[in-house]
C-alpha cells in the first residue's frame, strides 16, 4: 500500500531534469490535506470553469447575433430594436440602390466577359483576389508540406518553422511592400501578400492530412507499380490528402478575404478589397448599415464553417490559428 503510494506519487515530470530529486526532498510533493484551495476547487471548480465557458461563448457570439439582427432593424436606440423589419440597410450595403450611401457600399455589379453578374463589384473582386491567394498557396503550400512530412533533410526543421509560423506580421509586410513594389498593381501585391500571410494555415492543414497517411508505403507502392515520381505525387499522394487541401483552401480563402492590416497599408488604387469596404462602413456609416455590411461577411463565414464541418474540420481551429 505504502509502496504503491510512494511509486504513484505524482512527481512533476516536466523538463526540470536538474534537481528533480532535490524538489522531492524539499517536500513540494502534495500534502495529504488538500488545503483550502483544494477544497474550494473541488466543490466549485467545475462550475466556475463551466460558467466561464458559457460567459466566453456569449461574449464572443452574442454581438455577432445582435449585429445580424440589427442589420434588419429600422431603429435601435435602447436595449432592443424597434420599428419593424427592413431590408434597406442590406440594399445600401450591397450597393443595390442609387444613393450616396450605396456609392460607399459595394457599388455596381460585376461584369465578367460581357456578362453582368448579380454580384456587387467589390465583393466579387475581393473574392477573386482571395481566390488568387489560395491558388498561390496551393502551388506553394502543398509541396512544402509534403517535403517536410515525407523527407528528412538538412534544414528541414527551419523550413517547417518558416512554413507554419507567420514570421512577418501583416502590417510590417505592408510597410515593406510600399517601397519594394511601388509600381505593382494593388491587386497583385495583395495577392502575393495574402498567399504569404495565410500560407501557414494551408501548410498546417495539408500537413495534418499527410501525417495521417503512410506516405512512404503509398509512394513506394505506386513507384514499384511503375509510376514515375511526378505521376505518383500528382495522381496518388495529392488526391489522398484532399481533405486537408480542401479545408486549408477554405480557411485560407476566408481569412484572405477579410485580411485588413496588410490591405490597409498596401492598397492604393483599383477596386477596393472587401476588408477596406468593411472598415469604411464601420468608421463612416450609421450603426445599422455597418451592421448589414459586416453581416455579409458573417454569412460568408457561416457558410464556410458549414463547408468545413462537411470536410471534418471543427471551424477555424487549424493548428491553433497563429
Amino acid at each position: 500500500m505504502t509502496d504503491a503510494a510512494d511509486a504513484g506519487t505524482p512527481t512533476p515530470d516536466s523538463g526540470t531534469v536538474a534537481g528533480s530529486a532535490g524538489v522531492v526532498d524539499r517536500g513540494t510533493v502534495p500534502e495529504r490535506d488538500p488545503g483550502l484551495v483544494g477544497r474550494v476547487s473541488a466543490t466549485v471548480g467545475r462550475s466556475v470553469i463551466t460558467a466561464l465557458l458559457a460567459v466566453t461563448v456569449v461574449f464572443l457570439i452574442a454581438p455577432v447575433v445582435i449585429t445580424f439582427v440589427a442589420s434588419f432593424a429600422v431603429e435601435w436606440t435602447g436595449v432592443v430594436p424597434s420599428g419593424g423589419v427592413t431590408f434597406d440597410n442590406w440594399r445600401q450595403a450591397l450597393g443595390l440602390t442609387e444613393t450616396l450611401g450605396a456609392t460607399r457600399g459595394l457599388g455596381g455589379q460585376l461584369s465578367l466577359l460581357g456578362v453582368t453578374l448579380p454580384i456587387p463589384t467589390t465583393l466579387g473582386f475581393s473574392m477573386l483576389l482571395a481566390l488568387g491567394g489560395v491558388v498561390v498557396n496551393l502551388v506553394v503550400g502543398v509541396p512544402v508540406a509534403y517535403a517536410v512530412t515525407r523527407y528528412d533533410f538538412y534544414g528541414r526543421g527551419w523550413l517547417n518553422t518558416f512554413a507554419v509560423l507567420p514570421v512577418v506580421p501583416g502590417i510590417i509586410l505592408g510597410i515593406a511592400f510600399l517601397r519594394t513594389y511601388p509600381s505593382l498593381p494593388s491587386a497583385v501585391a495583395l495577392m502575393v501578400g495574402y498567399s504569404l500571410l495565410k500560407a501557414p494555415y494551408m501548410v498546417l492543414a495539408v500537413q495534418s492530412s499527410f501525417e495521417s497517411m503512410d506516405l512512404r508505403q503509398i509512394e513506394e507502392s505506386a513507384r514499384s507499380l511503375g509510376a514515375s515520381w511526378p505521376r505518383t505525387l500528382l495522381t496518388v499522394v495529392v488526391p489522398n490528402a484532399k481533405t486537408g487541401i480542401i479545408s486549408g483552401s477554405i480557411v485560407c480563402w476566408t481569412l484572405a478575404a477579410a485580411e485588413f492590416n496588410f490591405s490597409y497599408i498596401v492598397y492604393s488604387r483599383g477596386p477596393k478589397p472587401f476588408s477596406l469596404f468593411l472598415f469604411e462602413n464601420i468608421s463612416n456609416n450609421p450603426f445599422l448599415r455597418a451592421s448589414a455590411a459586416i453581416s455579409i461577411y458573417f454569412l460568408i463565414v457561416v457558410a464556410v464553417t458549414a463547408l468545413l464541418q462537411a470536410t471534418g474540420q471543427r471551424g477555424f481551429s487549424i493548428g491553433g490559428a497563429r
Binding site: A62, W76, A258, N261, L278, V304
Partner: peptide
Amino acid sequence: LVTLISFPISLPGIVAAFMMIVWFGKT
C-alpha cells in the same frame, strides 16, 4: 462549443472592434 469559440479567429480586428461597439458603445 468548439465551433462557436473558434468563430472569432476568422474575424479581422476591425470587426472585433465593431463587436465591442455592439456590446459597450454609446448605443
